[in-house]
Design a protein around this nucleic acid. Structure first.
Length: 229
DNA sequence: GCGACAG
DNA sequence: ATCTTGTCGC
């Protein structure tokens, strides 16, 4: 009988591992002006049996696509709030290996420090690859915050008790905000600047959109069904 | 015990 | 995340 996941970890083990690795996360800038920024997107196929990771590298600051890759592997871990990285990281690492160039900054689809144990997907991926990373989530996992202005670019700190764990950013006027947090080797201030610099006319940064688009195009090729626009 | 809960 | 057409609003 196959193991439920190659991490060979139970949820309790996964939580213990997060608590062990969290101290290694670097919360200050250890990044030089990046030329290649990557967007990561993970999706599921065949009723969740297959995990698909898509990654797109854009030139910065022009945001022109310069490389991309996709990886599909059997799903190895269930979705459990707080343990998302154990489900998505394996496929993402494989996709990164397929790239022809190395990204200098990763914009992850999920939380970084804005996590119960301060070790969300962005922290985990940043630590494993040693590449500066940022968590960019569409919805909140934990934390509270004040109301934020409707104007694009405004933001308010995301708090957990008396601790700043991230920022709630209005990336598009009049739209629901996104949740930005430190992943690894970057400060929250820089993270916000890069996310805004990578965002043009949509709510999500172009990196994330490019990865998402790549996945949908690739899926349509496999499905034989036209992609939607 | 009762909610909340990234993708 | 995923299953899915039309519809509301700038």
């Amino acid at each position: 009988m196959a193991l439920s996941h190659p991490w060979n970890l139970t949820p309790k083990d996964a939580i213990a591992l997060q608590n062990q690795l969290r101290s290694q996360v670097i919360q200050v800038d250890q990044i030089r002006q990046p030329r290649r920024i990557a967007g990561v997107d993970v999706g599921f196929e065949q009723s969740g049996k297959v995990t698909r990771a898509a990654i797109a590298i854009l030139d910065f600051p022009s945001l022109q696509l310069i490389d991309q890759a996709i990886a599909r592997i059997p799903t190895q871990f269930p979705y459990i709030p707080g343990l998302l990285s154990f489900r998505e990281v394996p496929a993402i690492l494989q996709a990164i290996d397929k790239l022809s160039c190395v990204p200098e900054l990763l914009l992850c689809d999920g939380q970084g420090l804005a996590h119960p144990r301060r070790f969300g997907l962005a922290c985990h991926l940043g630590l494993l690859t040693d590449i500066p990373s940022i968590g960019v989530a569409k919805t909140r996992l934990i934390g509270k915050h004040e109301q934020l202005p409707e104007e694009k670019g405004s933001w308010v700190p995301l708090m957990d008790r008396d601790e700043i764990i991230g920022a709630v950013l209005r990336s598009r006027s009049g739209m629901k905000p996104i949740y930005v947090s430190i992943g690894h080797r970057i400060s929250l201030d820089s993270a916000l600047n890069y996310v805004l610099a990578a965002t043009t006319r949509y709510k999500l940064p172009e990196t994330t959109r490019a990865a998402h688009h790549l996945a949908s195009v690739d899926k349509s090729a496999v499905t034989g069904r036209p992609e939607s626009r």
